[in-house]
């Protein structure tokens, strides 16, 4: 069943927003502001990845489209001096455009084949970034004009961007478009038989997800002022996938929770960051075995368990009554 919307469902989002609004009051060093911006950046990366996977396709190139947004905005800001509003939107559009053009021949592929094609696409595009001159090549792009001089101001701009992008993706999913994408994921044959143009809708999801990813990448690039192609290799895409899976891909809030927790965990204990891959690996196993719906699925899991107990209890009574 499609995730249902009601006011109660909005509470976690409101709480999260409130926390992110007040956090800089406590964590106002430039180090912590950096961490918080990183959290928001990866939240958007992971949520937009999930939008693409709604239609049943798993992409390994998502990090690359974040890179394309970042590089596009960085180059426009650095070489042409365009203002952030323009470069950030341009970054998103560029990522969307490239994702749709490169996705066109791929989206008909099914399951694992699509994933593999996306993997090669991602690797190739990063290779192109490393080989080109305008991108700063292997050493990266430096001296990008900063988004805003004040870090805390940067943070609030980033928060605003993240909220808008998440609202866009939310609207996208909880509308007939989302229903159509979910239908496609369940059976392409049936979806086609009711008139769904599978390629159009897959590309729509790819384009929408990549646009939001590109915008987040662009904004993050303008904040950090340097881009290194090694930051956008396959592992980056895999991390985003991981946040989504551990957070719970059946839930809109899943990747949000996943990204927040797994970006923050290594920060909580110094020296822990070196163990982040192991910690995440262990968590993945725990989730895979104990929490099939991911972290966001815990409330549903508890409810189901309770219902089951209630049924068992009533059955027990029936047995005694009939005995």
């Amino acid at each position: 069943m499609t995730e249902k919307l009601n006011v109660k469902k909005g509470i976690p989002y409101a709480v999260l927003l409130l926390i992110f609004l007040v956090l800089p009051i406590f964590l106002h060093t430039s180090y912590w502001i950096g961490v918080l911006i990183m959290v928001l950046y990866k939240v958007v990366g992971s949520v937009s990845l999930r939008t693409i996977s709604l239609s049943g396709t798993l992409t390994f190139a998502h990090g690359t489209f974040i890179a394309l947004g970042a590089y596009c905005a960085g180059i426009l800001a650095r070489n042409l001096g365009l203002p952030p509003v323009v470069t950030i939107i341009a970054g998103g559009l560029f990522a969307a455009l490239v994702s749709v053009i490169t996705g066109f021949p791929f989206v008909r592929l099914k399951g694992m084949y699509y994933s593999m094609a996306s993997m090669f696409l991602g690797v190739t595009l990063v290779y192109v970034i490393k080989a080109m001159k305008i991108t700063g090549g292997y050493h990266g792009l430096t001296r990008i004009p900063k988004l805003l001089q004040n870090d805390i101001a940067c943070y609030y701009v980033f928060l605003a961007i993240a909220v808008v992008l998440i609202l866009i993706l939310f609207r996208f999913e909880f509308s007939r478009i989302g229903t159509t994408l979910r239908a496609l994921a369940q059976s392409q044959d049936v979806a086609s038989s009711i008139g769904v143009n599978a390629r159009f809708y897959r590309l729509l999801a790819v384009g929408m997800g990549s646009f939001c990813a590109g915008v987040a990448g662009a904004a993050y690039g303008l904040y950090s002022t340097v881009l290194s192609p090694t930051n956008y290799d396959m592992t980056f895409s895999l991390w985003l996938l991981m946040y989504m899976l551990i957070g719970g891909e059946d839930y809109f809030i899943g990747p949000i929770i996943g990204a927040i927790i797994f970006v923050l965990i290594p920060e909580l204990g110094r020296g822990l960051s070196a163990y982040a891959p192991f910690l995440t690996g262990a968590c993945t196993l725990i989730v895979a075995y104990l929490l099939p719906g991911g972290l966001a699925g815990i409330p549903d899991l508890i409810r189901k368990k309770k219902e089951q107990k209630a049924i068992e209890a009533s059955e027990g009574r029936d047995d005694r009554a009939s005995a």
Binding site: M1, T2, T179, T180, R182, A183, Q186, S187, D189, V190, I194, G195, V196
Partner: peptide
């Protein structure tokens, strides 16, 4: 007879009003 198995009966039918 494949269906949209994860959809409810009602959702299966409403989804079909695509055109």
């Amino acid at each position: 007879n494949p269906l949209f198995g994860e959809f409810t009966v009602f959702e299966n039918v409403t989804a079909a009003y695509h055109l």
